[in-house]
Design a protein around this nucleic acid. Sequence first.
DNA 1: TCCGCTTATATTCCGGCTGACAATAAACCG
DNA 2: CGGTTTATTGTCAGCCGGAATATAAGCGGA
Lengths: 321, 321
Amino acid sequence: MHDQAVRIKKANSARKGRDINVDLIAVVAAVSDWEPCVLTVGQRDSLPSGPFELSHRSLQSGLRDWVEQQTGHPLGYIEQLYTFADRDRIIAGREQRNISISYLALTRQDAIRMSRTSRWSSWYDYFPWEDHRSGAPAALRLLRPRLLAWAKGADNAAARRERRQRAAIAFGFDDRPWNEELTLQRYELLYEAALVEEAAADPKPSAAASLSGRTMVADHRRILATGIARLRSKIKYRPVVFELMRPAFTLLHLQRTVEALAGRLINKPNFRRLVEQQELVEETGETSLDTGGRPAKLYRFRHAVLDEQAVVGTKLPLSRA
Amino acid sequence: MHDQAVRIKKANSARKGRDINVDLIAVVAAVSDWEPCVLTVGQRDSLPSGPFELSHRSLQSGLRDWVEQQTGHPLGYIEQLYTFADRDRIIAGREQRNISISYLALTRQDAIRMSRTSRWSSWYDYFPWEDHRSGAPAALRLLRPRLLAWAKGADNAAARRERRQRAAIAFGFDDRPWNEELTLQRYELLYEAALVEEAAADPKPSAAASLSGRTMVADHRRILATGIARLRSKIKYRPVVFELMRPAFTLLHLQRTVEALAGRLINKPNFRRLVEQQELVEETGETSLDTGGRPAKLYRFRHAVLDEQAVVGTKLPLSRA
DNA sequence: TCCGCTTATATTCCGGCTGACAATAAACCG
DNA sequence: CGGTTTATTGTCAGCCGGAATATAAGCGGA
């Protein structure tokens, strides 16, 4: 196909393709009181979002506009997550294709001026099985038999083994290690096993909510899972945690924040060693007395590392236990 | 803002947003004769692409359709790369927004039936500074003074230092290690420094082509750089190389393939150790005599690892030298 | 046939990073 | 002033990754 032909073909279907709508949607994350939170809007839980319009200078600025409009505060750090094509839906009698471009945004919770309809909720309200800071959560123990039952329900022996193994890997059964990065796989597995409400034809709050977590509108919980997985992966090799910190913080604050995101505890001395030897932070000279015991030194992020290490390094001690 | 209001707002701008066109675009990669290649179409170098249409079942299937139509062969492994919003352009007198959803596809070169207008080109025709398998390439030595001159041309001392440092990190100046994953940053730096043709107002093949590489249509070279960076990063923790291998291969074949992608050499015994201890492959029982010396055992990929390790592990020995 | 060439395969050594644990320091509280 | 709490420093063994070395198995020509 010649360039000419390609161009004609593109022009044709640009005309046909008018019924494609492009949405921008944000997972806005923060940590407060050692709980990782996400910003939602509306009566039913929705992620802030809005259509991409001609007036937007770029995808990112369009997203910033929408979130600022819906929550009253500009965003700082954002990165693209994934682009989904939703199921078809009918608007004004015509078939309508909907594309969602999702972003992950990091901010400090107190940096958001609350509006009437936006609010923060803990990640773990939506994913109760994801928080392993106090050992394996109850939700996980309750899910296990259901997942095993689902695996048993497969057609043939091979499919049963395959389901069994997928569940074991994702959820750490059979003495496999818990891998906090598999948040998305876990959610998709539960969806496939019809153990989350969104999988039901008519979503309604049920008694199972405490087991399978709070639901969100449409596929928003899936997008949130994507964001959590991305963030849990990224904190291990990029200094993004600091987007969630106040200007000055103690090393324990920093550690608790990372633990909140990862949903697991980490070794204190080792954490300190890693942070210090990478020169991610510098002392402010002040100390914090809030802790009850010996006062902790306050640190601030060395913004210079963003230039120095650029993209490499910056590991946090989060491997399999 | 209430759900109701959100819905109305979305409906409104869906009506206004009709002039948004969505393109699917593919970086199709393969390795042959130890050269990493990309599939291009058209007279001028373009990546295979086409608009997303209502008839497509999903983004992925739309992409598969276009590539199959333009190159005559179905794709295997694909993964999403990034979504760009191009600059505005005018079609039929109306402002037109163009969104490109890019994908990375992996295949064996001989698995593509060549059509009249599609062809393979080495990555390193487009990015001559990226191949470090025979030491630092000539293009890199030639670019260095120009980059330093660009750094010197900044307004003030701080900006000069910042440019200097960015260039040093990206290209490994001042005894910094070469980091093969920074392909995209390097291209963007060269673009900013106006050292690649796309940055010029009217792109024309010039004598500098050997220095700054072959150009592509529009921003396609940038998308290719994104794909290369993603692949170079991904081979280190997922067994995706095998998508590029024939069913049976020697360990040296596998190593040379990884080296071609990474653009750097790796230590042979260490490579073997890593591949074997992860049980990524199993012997076929046959041997290959093509090599001239002692016959090499042939191996095949253990597809079971896709279920076992799922997402974790699978590291390849490619850290900073 | 034997020697040298080429490539494949196996083994060893070493340094650094990581995880687990222990010890000391500095505040507060009664 | 002793007990409690938290911060901070130190130690040690195991593993992993990188480099170098040694051995094996073909081929081809002298």
